[in-house]
Design a protein around this nucleic acid. Structure first.
Length: 805
DNA sequence: CAGTGAGCGAGCTTCCGCTTGACTT
C-alpha cells in the first residue's frame, strides 16, 4: 500500500513525475476533466440560482472508480492539476467525486516538469482556490447557455444540426467579414517606376544600381510624361545615409506560434502540427504542447546557454526572459521547447524530426544575440523634377541568432533581397542608365485567412485556448460554415513602359491574380448563419465579447463577484434576445427571390434547404408541389442569377436510348455523370453536362466497360487470388484486402506461389469492410433514415434498408 | 456513391476546455 497518491492531468506527465518522486508516491492521471455538465439538456437549473447538474461521462467511469480505489488506499492525496482556471476546477471535481477529506488532501502546482520544481511544490501545498473554481463554473455555464440556446434557434430558422457558440460563431464571423471586405475592395492601379543605373563597384566592374521612384504615378499619361522627361534629365546622388539596424529573435514557441510557423515553414495543417507535437511530448522529447506561455525554465535557459557557447561562442549568447503579451493568457506551463536541449536531433518519423528541429532552433535562437545590420539609403535627384529615386542596400554586420533561425512571415509577396550598395558619393552623376521602367501595379485586397493566420487572429482577440484552436477550426469546417480550398486566379493584363536607349516601349503583359492555396472561404450556410446571428445577437458576435466576459470571470476569481450573479446578469439580457429571435425572425432566413420562371410564371427562390443551398420554383403554398434543384458548389446565394438558377433545372437531361435503355445526364455529389441501366459513368472534366452528346455518352460507357474488362490481369480462382489493374498500378486482391506488387516484378508473370508469398510478406490483412460509408454518413443519415422509414410507411423493405443504413 | 426538399410528427442535433486512445483510410 502506497503512502501518497499524486493526480496530474496528463499520463505522460505522470510517467516523468513518478521517476522524480520515488516509490512512496504513486502518480496517476485524470486525463483532463473527469466530470462535466450533463450531456443531455441544459444541465443547469437556472431558477435554482444556476445550480449545475454534473455527471461523470461514461468513458470516464472506469477511471474514476480506479482513482477512488487508489485514493482510499493512500494516506495523502496530492492534487497536481495545472495552475489555471480549468486545472483548479479539475482538482475540485476530483476532491468532490473521489470523496476526499480536507485533512489528507493537498493541492500543489508546478509550471515545469523538473525534479526541483516538483519537490518544491510538495513542500508548499495549499488549499483548493474556491474562487477560481467558481470562475470556471461561470465560464462553463455561460458557454453551455450560449451554445444550447442559440443552436436550436438555428435548427428552426435555418437547418437542423447546426451550431453556434461563443467561440465558433465569432470565428466564422472573422471569415465572413473578411470575404465581404474582399468583395467590396476596389482594386486601383498605379505606376511604379524603377531605374537601373550602371555604376562601378569597388573593383571597378560595372554593376546594377536599382532605385525606385519614391512616388507612385497614378495614370499612364503621368508615367509616360515622366519617362519622356527622363529622356533628357540628369541624375545625381543627393544624399547618402547609413543606419545601423537590429533584429531580435522571436520568443520561444507557444501553441499558436508553433502552429503558424509549422504551417509557413513545413506546410503542416493546424491539426497535423498538434498530432505530431503530441507524439513528441508523449515520447518525452518536448515539453507540453498546449501552452500560451513564452516562459523558459531557468534550467532550460542554462542548457541553451551551454549549447550556444559550444556551437557559436560567447559572442552569440544573450540570455533573455520573454513576456507573454497575448490576451487572457493563463501561463500554466512553460513555452514549448525540447526537453533536452543538448539533443540537436531525434529519432522518429520525418514529420517528427522536422517539427523537433523547428522547436529546437526556435528555442536556441531565443537565447542568442541580436543580428546587426547596416542599411544604406541613397537618394537620387532628377533634374527638373521634384520626385526622387531611392536606392536601398543592406549588409549583415553580425548574424547573431540568424545563424540558426529566422522567423517567416505570412506576406506572400516575395521579399526582395537587398544587397550591399556599390560605393557612391554625394554629388556623383549617374549618366550610365540601363533602363527606366514604369510598371502598372495593383492595390492588394486584404488576404484570406489560412488556418494558421486564423489561429493568430483568435489569439490576438483572446478567443479560444491553446487546447481548442485546432478543434474550433475543424468544427466550423464540419458544420460546413467554412471550406478550406484552392482557387484558381484570373488572368489580368497590365501595362509596362520601358525607357531604354532613348526610346519608350509600351507593352501589355499578363499575370495571374487572386490565386489562393489552402485558404478559408465562407460557404452559403456560413454566410446565412452569420448574418442571422449578427442581426439578432450582436453582443455575442462582438469581437470583444470574450474579452469582456473574461473580465467578469477575473472578478469572480479574485473574489470580488459572486459567480452566480455574474451569470444572472448575463442571462437577464441574453435570454430575452433568444425569445425575441424565436418569435420575430422569419422561417425563411437567407431566402431570396431571384426572379420569375418564364415558363410557369412562378417565383424562383434560392435558400438554405434541409440539405443545403437549393433553388426552388414555386412556393409551398401553391397547389402544385414546388420544384427543387441543389445549387452548385461555387454558386453564391447572394449573387447567383436567374439564368444560372434556371439552368439547374435543365438536369437531369435525357440523352436518348442505348441498348434499349435511357441515358440521362445529371450532377451528383461527385460531379457530373451519365446514368444508364442503373449504372453510373462519370463525365470527364472537359465534358459539359449541358452540351454532352449521345455519342460522347456512349463513348464514356464503353470506356468504363473496357476498363472493367481490363481490371483482371490474372485470376487464380481456386485460391481466390486476383491480380488487378488499379488506379495506382497493378495490385493483388485476396480475401477482401489489397496487397502491393513490387515495381520490379512484372505482374503478368506472377504465379500463385509468388502471390501467396507477397501476401504473407505484407502480413495478411483483415478484409476491408464495405467502405466506411457507415462512419461518414451516420450523422447525416439520422435524418434521412427517419424520413425513409416514414416515406414508405409500413412496408417491410423500407424498415430493412433503414436498419442497414 | 450518384438522394433528398410538402404532408403526419417523435426524437434527434448543439457549447467550450481539459485530456488520450480506439477506431478506420
Amino acid at each position: 500500500m502506497q503512502k501518497n497518491l499524486v493526480i496530474v492531468e496528463s499520463p505522460a506527465k505522470a510517467k516523468t513525475i513518478e521517476k522524480f518522486l520515488g516509490k512512496d508516491y504513486k502518480v496517476m492521471s485524470s486525463f483532463g476533466h473527469i466530470r462535466d455538465l450533463k450531456k443531455k439538456g441544459l444541465g443547469i437549473n437556472i431558477e435554482n440560482n444556476f445550480a449545475p447538474d454534473y455527471e461523470v461521462p461514461d468513458d470516464k467511469k472506469a477511471l474514476v472508480a480506479e482513482l477512488k480505489k487508489q485514493a482510499k488506499a493512500s494516506d495523502i492525496v496530492w492534487l497536481a492539476s495545472d495552475e489555471d482556471r480549468e486545472g483548479e476546477a479539475i482538482a475540485w471535481h476530483l476532491f468532490d467525486v473521489l470523496g476526499l477529506k480536507k485533512e489528507n488532501t493537498r493541492r500543489i502546482v508546478f509550471h515545469e516538469i523538473t525534479k526541483n520544481a516538483i519537490l518544491n511544490a510538495i513542500e508548499h501545498p495549499r488549499d483548493i482556490d474556491d474562487n477560481l473554481v467558481c470562475a470556471q463554473q461561470a465560464r462553463r455555464e455561460l458557454d453551455r447557455i450560449v451554445g444550447f440556446e442559440l443552436s436550436p434557434i438555428l435548427w428552426k430558422k435555418v437547418k437542423p444540426a447546426l451550431s453556434a457558440g461563443r467561440v465558433q460563431s465569432v470565428t466564422v464571423r472573422l471569415i465572413v467579414d473578411r470575404e465581404r471586405e474582399i468583395q467590396q475592395f476596389n482594386t486601383e492601379s498605379s505606376y511604379r517606376v524603377r531605374a537601373i543605373f550602371r555604376v562601378k563597384d569597388k573593383s571597378g566592374k560595372l554593376v546594377d544600381l536599382k532605385a525606385d521612384l519614391s512616388d507612385k504615378l497614378s495614370s499612364k499619361e503621368e508615367a509616360l510624361a515622366f519617362l519622356e522627361h527622363c529622356k533628357s534629365a540628369s541624375f545625381s546622388i543627393e544624399t547618402i545615409e547609413h543606419k545601423p539596424l537590429k533584429r531580435f529573435p522571436a520568443a520561444p514557441f507557444t501553441t499558436s506560434t508553433l502552429q503558424q510557423e509549422a504551417a509557413r515553414k513545413l506546410n503542416f495543417s493546424v491539426s497535423q502540427t498538434m498530432r505530431v507535437a503530441q507524439s513528441l511530448y508523449e515520447s518525452g522529447k518536448i515539453t507540453y504542447m498546449r501552452t500560451d506561455s513564452v516562459n523558459l525554465s531557468s534550467l532550460a535557459i542554462e542548457t541553451a546557454k551551454k549549447e550556444i557557447l559550444s556551437i557559436a561562442g560567447e559572442k552569440y549568447h544573450h540570455a533573455r526572459q520573454y513576456q507573454t503579451k497575448s490576451k487572457g493568457a493563463q501561463e500554466a506551463h512553460e513555452a514549448i521547447r525540447p526537453t533536452y536541449i543538448s539533443e540537436h536531433e531525434i529519432e522518429g518519423t520525418s514529420q517528427e524530426k522536422k517539427l523537433y528541429d523547428l522547436i529546437w532552433k526556435r528555442t536556441i535562437a531565443s537565447q542568442m544575440a541580436d543580428a546587426e545590420l547596416e542599411r544604406t539609403v541613397a537618394v537620387i535627384a532628377v533634374s527638373g523634377d521634384k520626385r526622387k529615386f531611392v536606392a536601398e542596400g543592406e549588409v549583415l554586420i553580425f548574424d547573431g541568432f540568424l545563424r540558426v533561425y529566422m522567423e517567416s512571415t505570412d506576406d506572400d509577396e516575395t521579399q526582395e533581397n537587398k544587397n550591399l550598395l556599390p560605393p557612391l558619393n554625394v554629388g556623383d552623376k549617374l549618366s550610365n542608365i540601363s533602363s527606366i521602367e514604369a510598371c502598372e501595379r495593383f492595390s492588394q485586397r486584404p488576404p484570406r485567412y489560412t488556418e494558421a493566420s486564423l489561429v493568430h487572429k483568435l489569439e490576438e482577440l483572446g478567443i479560444g485556448r491553446p487546447s481548442t484552436y485546432a478543434t474550433t477550426i475543424s468544427t466550423i469546417q464540419q458544420r460546413e460554415y467554412v471550406v478550406r480550398e484552392d482557387r484558381e486566379g484570373e488572368e489580368r493584363t497590365y501595362n509596362k513602359l520601358t525607357l531604354k536607349n532613348g526610346s519608350i516601349e509600351d507593352a501589355t503583359k499578363t499575370e495571374m491574380a487572386g490565386v489562393e492555396r489552402s485558404k478559408l472561404f465562407p460557404t452559403n450556410i456560413g454566410i446565412v448563419v452569420n448574418d442571422f446571428l449578427q442581426e439578432y445577437f450582436p453582443d455575442i458576435l462582438d469581437y470583444n465579447f470574450t474579452a469582456n466576459v473574461e473580465k467578469t470571470f477575473d472578478d469572480v476569481a479574485e473574489g470580488k463577484l459572486e459567480w452566480t450573479s455574474s451569470l444572472s446578469s448575463f442571462y437577464k439580457t441574453f435570454h430575452p434576445t433568444v425569445e425575441n429571435a424565436a418569435q420575430r425572425s422569419e422561417r425563411k432566413v437567407g431566402e431570396r427571390q431571384v426572379g420569375v420562371d418564364p415558363v410557369s410564371g412562378k417565383p424562383v427562390f434560392v435558400k438554405i434547404g434541409r440539405f443545403g443551398p437549393v433553388a426552388q420554383i414555386g412556393s409551398a403554398e401553391d397547389e402544385e408541389k414546388p420544384k427543387f434543384a441543389p445549387l452548385r458548389k461555387n454558386q453564391s446565394l447572394e449573387s447567383v442569377s436567374l439564368e444560372e438558377v434556371l439552368d439547374l433545372f435543365k438536369l437531369p437531361r435525357d440523352l436518348g436510348e442505348y441498348e434499349g435503355k435511357m441515358m440521362t445526364v445529371a450532377i451528383g455529389r461527385f460531379g457530373a455523370y451519365v446514368k444508364h441501366d442503373s449504372k453510373f459513368y462519370s463525365l470527364k472534366k472537359t465534358d459539359d453536362p449541358m452540351q454532352i452528346t449521345e455519342d460522347r455518352a456512349i463513348e464514356l460507357i464503353e470506356e468504363k466497360r473496357q476498363q472493367a474488362a481490363n481490371k483482371y490481369i490474372k485470376q487464380f480462382e481456386t485460391e481466390g487470388i486476383d491480380v488487378c489493374n488499379g488506379r495506382f498500378g497493378p495490385y493483388i486482391a485476396y480475401n477482401g484486402a489489397n496487397y502491393k506488387i513490387p515495381k520490379t516484378t512484372d505482374p503478368n508473370t506472377l504465379t500463385v506461389e509468388e502471390c501467396k508469398a507477397l501476401i504473407e510478406k505484407q502480413g495478411e490483412k483483415a478484409p476491408k469492410t464495405k467502405k466506411s460509408a457507415a462512419k461518414t454518413t451516420t450523422k447525416k443519415s439520422s435524418t434521412t433514415t427517419a424520413k425513409s422509414k416514414t416515406a414508405a410507411s409500413g412496408t417491410t423493405t423500407a424498415k430493412k434498408s433503414a436498419k442497414k443504413a
